[in-house]
Simulated assay, not measured.
Amino acid sequence: MTTTPSIAFQLPAVVVVSGASSGLGSDLCQMLVESDVTTIGVDISDASAELKDRDGYTHVSGDVSEEKTWQHVVEILQSQNHASYGLVTSAAILHVGTLLDTSKEELERSLRINVTGTALAMKAMLPLMIGVGGGPIVAVASIDATFAEQQLATYCATKGAVRQLARTVAMDHARQGVRVNVLSPGPMMAGLFKRHMSSATDPGKFEATRANRQPGGRILEASEVASAALFLLSNGSSALNGTEVMADGGLTTSFDFRTGTEGASV
């Protein structure tokens, strides 16, 4: 009989995930539920078809930038009395265009959802975590928090703010057992990248070009990035606090990945 080597890490009893109705958030919620983690998804949209009516999943429909949404989440958690808590902030919006193409309203909306929404989620969950001796927070930023990307000025700026917000909260609450790490995805076949791709003149060419830039030659699936989030939520990542995990398939490892078409000896 052959066995496959494996390793097991412990996850929090309950995890709250913002941006739960699509893409990374939805995939992560499904993985958590399948791992027997009580999961609360938060999104302005209804629960996805894959999560609706699933045992162990509760959906809160609301704007992540509104305090009342997070008050509702806290009320649910307090009524359940869990032993440990986790949080993943993956709710975000993306506006495609240069700064000249961006209205004041679009800029403020990006800041409200991407930054304020993340901060309010942390502010709501921190007292619960501190009360049980700590807990893990995964703040989803982006490789665009560090690297500029054309036509994504507001997205890059807000994700940079999320990155520094998370790192500072990590230091503020480290002695209370709270760990905050940043998960920065690269392109993945999920909502935001797909919307960016669909805005291109030739979406097929856009996808092929972006896939060719990846060292592995393909765009990651959202489920692969969700697996990285699971690790950061688990006690297997207990040595990590205030760090950033670039879940980009190696895209940002090199300044110029060579495919061989340039005549380079690779």
Rank of each mutant, 00 (worst) to 15 (best):
Y57M: 12
R195N: 12
E149V: 04
Q164H: 13
A200Q: 11
S142K: 04
P5L: 04
V245A: 15
S61C: 07
G250A: 08
L107T: 03
E34R: 13
S65P: 03
S223R: 15
A148N: 06
A49D: 11
L87N: 12
R218H: 12
A121M: 05
A157D: 10
I143Y: 06
H95T: 09
V60W: 00
R163H: 15
V245T: 14
L32W: 09
K123I: 03
E66K: 04
S103T: 15
A161G: 09
G250M: 05
V115T: 13
H82K: 07
V178F: 12
D248M: 07
M171P: 00
A139R: 01
T116F: 09
D46W: 00
D53V: 01
V60P: 00
A91C: 08
M122D: 11
H82I: 05
T253I: 07
E50I: 08
I130G: 03
T201W: 01
M31N: 14
I130V: 14
T201F: 02
S234I: 04
G117Y: 05
E149C: 06
T58L: 14
K205F: 05
R167M: 14
L77V: 10
N114C: 12
T118L: 09
M189T: 01
T118P: 00
G135R: 08
A20P: 02
I44L: 10
K205A: 15
A239I: 03
L232Q: 13
A145L: 02
L94K: 01
G160C: 10
A153F: 02
L165D: 07
S103W: 03
A174H: 10
L111G: 12
A222M: 01
T154R: 00
E105Y: 01
I219K: 00
V73C: 09
D172K: 08
V73G: 07
S90I: 04
A229K: 06
G97H: 06
T58S: 14
E108K: 07
T154Q: 06
S79Y: 02
I7V: 11
S142V: 03
L152T: 06
R213D: 13
L77I: 12
I137M: 13
A139S: 14
V33K: 11
S18V: 04
R195I: 04
S199L: 01
M1G: 13
E108N: 14
N114I: 10
N181S: 15
L233N: 11
I143E: 12
G263A: 09
N181C: 15
K52I: 04
